[in-house]
Simulated assay, not measured.
Amino acid sequence: MTPITEVEGRRVALSNLEKVLYPATGFTKAEVLHYYATTAEPLLPHLRDRPLSFLRYPDGPDGQLFFAKNVPPGTPDWVTTAEVPRSEGPARMVLVQDLASLMWAANLVTEFHTPQWLIGAPGEADRLVFDLDPGPPATIVECCRVALWLRDRLAADGIEAYAKTSGAKGLHLLAAVRPTPSRRVTEYAKELAVGAEKAMPRLVVHRMTRSLRPRKVFVDWSQNAARKTTAAPYTLRARSEPTVSTPVTWEEVASCTDPGQLVFRAPDLESRVRAYGDLLAPLLDRAGAGALP
């Protein structure tokens, strides 16, 4: 029998709690759910009002992985959904607005991915993002060098950037911007990526061609397109261990000399949030958003 628990007055079915999802560490589904419950306070504001794409891995990262954008079958009627325009036709997608819907979604075993816009203004970006992806043998250490250059370049335009680990190999830079058409934000991000490659030609590549990436950091500017999504802050990733896309300080970025320094797992987050709060909270302050030049 599937256990039913009550979350903020909603009945949520939680299944297979003893199932090991991360065999390398023995991390179970119950621990996944506990992680999301205890990290909900900083996580939920970064999900709220953004239609979610789910990367599901119900049998762990070694099992089948699949993206789900449409509302999954069996979604409770109390979970908020919204129609989202897409080039191939409108779709109905999930909005995780509260703890109950977060726990329902976490029970599906998923990475949370969000667009750079809010449901009230599809295609009007309120965030800018760079995904810094290292081509082996480059690592997150090289990503940190590139991140510092991009931070300073954005600051020159009056835009304050914040960093988080991807939870995989790389680093994400995010900045709050005044609502701007996604096309324009994408163009601006590409301009900066090209500038980074010119400034650091032996370290940076801005083109997606995989043969160009070894030993360099690919500055992926394309995730600003309205149709694209990025792993949300605090989401677990489908990796061998329960790594988390974790906000980090600029001091941590500047001092990183070993990839292990910026690997954070689910059990690490409670103490980090207690020590730092939500390092990405400024992204939620619309009044502090920068304007693109």
Rank of each mutant, 00 (worst) to 15 (best):
218 F>V: 07
276 Y>A: 13
248 V>A: 05
243 T>M: 13
266 A>E: 09
275 A>H: 11
268 D>A: 08
217 V>I: 13
269 L>H: 02
264 F>A: 03
277 G>R: 10
254 A>H: 09
238 A>K: 03
224 N>E: 09
217 V>A: 02
206 H>E: 15
278 D>R: 06
281 A>S: 14
285 D>L: 03
200 M>Y: 02
260 G>C: 08
239 R>G: 06
256 C>A: 13
278 D>Q: 06
277 G>L: 10
270 E>C: 03
227 R>D: 15
271 S>F: 01
230 T>K: 02
278 D>Y: 05
236 L>T: 02
285 D>K: 07
201 P>K: 03
269 L>V: 11
272 R>Y: 08
204 V>G: 01
282 P>I: 10
276 Y>G: 11
235 T>C: 03
256 C>M: 09
258 D>M: 05
255 S>W: 00
270 E>Q: 12
205 V>S: 00
224 N>W: 01
266 A>H: 08
230 T>L: 02
232 A>E: 02
242 P>T: 08
238 A>P: 01
231 A>W: 00
283 L>S: 07
280 L>A: 11
222 S>M: 12
233 P>G: 06
273 V>A: 08
226 A>S: 13
236 L>E: 01
261 Q>W: 06
244 V>E: 10
270 E>N: 09
262 L>N: 01
259 P>Y: 06
244 V>H: 06
211 S>G: 12
281 A>L: 11
252 E>G: 06
245 S>L: 09
203 L>V: 04
267 P>F: 02
276 Y>E: 15
268 D>G: 09
260 G>I: 01
226 A>N: 04
259 P>W: 04
212 L>D: 07
207 R>G: 13
274 R>E: 15
230 T>S: 14
282 P>D: 13
258 D>S: 12
255 S>D: 15
280 L>S: 05
200 M>A: 03
223 Q>N: 13
253 V>F: 03
210 R>Y: 11
273 V>P: 01
247 P>W: 06
201 P>V: 00
284 L>P: 05
286 R>H: 13
200 M>D: 02
200 M>K: 00
216 K>W: 04
277 G>M: 11
247 P>Q: 12
252 E>Q: 15
263 V>L: 12
215 R>H: 14
219 V>P: 00
238 A>E: 01
237 R>Q: 06
206 H>I: 00
275 A>Q: 14
230 T>W: 02
267 P>D: 10
259 P>D: 07
235 T>R: 00
254 A>D: 14
217 V>T: 02
234 Y>Q: 00
223 Q>D: 14
203 L>G: 03
280 L>E: 07
252 E>W: 07
236 L>I: 05
273 V>D: 07
262 L>M: 10
271 S>W: 08
224 N>A: 08
214 P>I: 05
250 W>T: 07
265 R>Q: 14
226 A>T: 07
207 R>P: 05
237 R>Y: 05
227 R>E: 15
246 T>L: 05
246 T>E: 09
210 R>D: 15
247 P>M: 10
224 N>R: 03
